[in-house]
Design a protein around this nucleic acid. Structure first.
Lengths: 131, 131
DNA sequence: TATAATAATAGTAATAATTATCATTATTGT
DNA sequence: ACAATAATGATAATTATTACTATTATTATA
């Protein structure tokens, strides 16, 4: 990475993101990185999350429910947002790359990719909240 | 609508949203409604956009690029976000309702729906910005 | 039509999420 | 070891949105 130097704080952010499947917000990343780096600043967390997302090392998820979330797995995959508890869960289905071709028909731009966000009630909420 | 009274301001917001295909932000709605209602407040615009989105009369689009956008057409359809100019464009393809069934396989929650956001370069940007 | 109930408004203050600034510290190539 | 410069922590600033409240508008009914 040209012009990018290693930093312990950035590494700790990557390590934390890769250790969880919870799609944490910047604030949650901050809370968890502070366990090992009590002096880390929230600005540093935001700066690095942006850098890593720009480099394609992590994914940024904007689910429209407040803060952005981040995913340590940069491979394109689909997500589910529970509108009971707000959790974001990875879905285990193959990305449908062919829909980029379908969408391109009759469109004068160039399609580079897509995101899919499913919504509904997660397994936990179905039980605990009687959905 | 139980407990909901008519207001000229709300009607003006609906009229404006239905008159454009530009998926405006709350700020843009505000600017345009002010042409006919110079005293309308930004809070009124936000309050009504939230109300209308909750009632299902309009769509809220969170594209992850700053402000939420709104669409006067509440029928589920797919969108394209140009990462050259930031414009959001309606795509003319049939929603793939069957993918909700695919996604539900091996998932313990209930899938109620999904959104798809394509990205790339719009026709204008391909020309004007040499993409 | 006048009235009473209450929803909606404008204006403003407050909050939440994120980005910018900057002096100091850490990393890295030579 | 040193010089160049990227990264940091602390804080201020910005952006997007929501909350509060006294006043005004809508609407059902007398």
């Amino acid at each position: 990475m040209a012009g990018v130097k290693f930093s312990r704080q950035r590494q700790a952010i990557i390590d934390y993101l890769c250790s969880t499947k919870e799609h944490p917000t910047a604030e949650t990343v901050y809370t968890n990185v502070r366990i090992n780096y009590p002096n880390v600043s929230l600005g540093t967390v935001y700066r690095n999350l942006n850098l890593l997302a720009d480099e394609g090392e992590i994914l940024r998820l904007s689910c429209g429910d407040g803060s952005d979330r981040f995913d340590g797995n940069p491979k394109p995959h689909y997500h589910f947002l529970c509108n009971g508890c707000g959790r974001v869960i990875d879905l285990d289905i193959e990305p449908m790359n062919h829909i980029d071709v379908l969408a391109a028909a009759g469109f004068d731009g160039t399609i580079e990719g897509h995101t899919v966000l499913f919504n509904g009630k997660c397994g936990n909420c179905k039980i605990s909240k009687n959905y």
